[in-house]
Simulated scan of single mutants.
Amino acid sequence: MDYPTLLARLGEGSAHPGGFQATKELITQISFPRGTKILEAGCGTGRTACYLASLGCNVTAIDRNKDMIHKALNRAKISNLPVRIVQADATSIPFPDETFDAVFTESVTAFTQGSSAIHEYWRVLKPKGVLYDRELAFARTLTMVQKKKLQSFYGLQHMRTVPEWLKLMSNSRFHKYSASAFSKIKQQANDNDSLRIIDHELFTKPDAVAMMMKNERLMSKFSNVMGSTVITAWKA
């Protein structure tokens, strides 16, 4: 079992820095007009996609993990919200060029190799479209040993500081881009997700329990340097 599958079976809908409260705050700041065509890349269990749809946005959501897709479909059905949900990878988005007004993603690009996902975000955006990417960031450059620990457990491909994210964006085809200041991970408030479905059988499996404990140890170990930035990029 890999880390994304563990999250899926736990029904975790907001594992990114800041949790769902940070997601809602960012969406409030953006203030998408009703009818905005949004692609959420890496939708997980569909919590954010459904929230955007509830605000009147036209939402398409993708995720490469089949367990996440199953739970996202279930959430949209129960919520009676018109979200199009497709199993697909952010590095190979199965939609034509210039399809969406905005791409919204959180802690997904960090799990993709190179700049392939960023190129795909640019490709599927309409002219003057905008990318909003809350991304995992670090307060300082990590050592190779530290990077290997995080890569081997989480599958992270990018362990970048804010300036390093901006350097990556400078090689993209986006017309203009910016990144917010580094923000440390805050202790999340009690988050009540009434539609969360947890596979309780996991708690009887030693390997799954060991993964959960290792996650806690790594989060504690890197808590002083791990956080996030919000990258905003505009297509000409």
Rank of each mutant, 00 (worst) to 15 (best):
V209A: 03
T232L: 07
F153V: 07
V103F: 07
A137K: 00
A15S: 15
L131A: 15
K214S: 01
L136C: 03
F32R: 00
S180H: 10
K184F: 15
S54E: 12
H119V: 05
S228R: 02
I118R: 00
I38S: 00
G129Q: 05
D101V: 07
S79L: 10
H200K: 08
G155C: 12
C50K: 02
L131F: 15
A117Y: 11
H16P: 05
L55T: 03
M144L: 13
K71W: 11
T143K: 06
M144S: 13
P96G: 04
V209F: 00
T36G: 09
E164M: 15
F222M: 04
E106L: 06
G35A: 13
T45V: 13
G19E: 00
E135Y: 02
R173K: 05
S54C: 05
E201P: 02
S152R: 13
S79C: 07
A102H: 12
G56T: 08
A236L: 05
N215D: 13
E98Y: 05
I198F: 03
E135C: 01
I78L: 14
K148P: 14
E98G: 05
T161N: 05
T60Y: 13
F138I: 04
C57V: 08
S14D: 11
A22R: 15
S79W: 12
L125N: 00
L7C: 12
N190G: 09
L81T: 15
R217W: 03
V225H: 06
G46R: 00
T143Y: 08
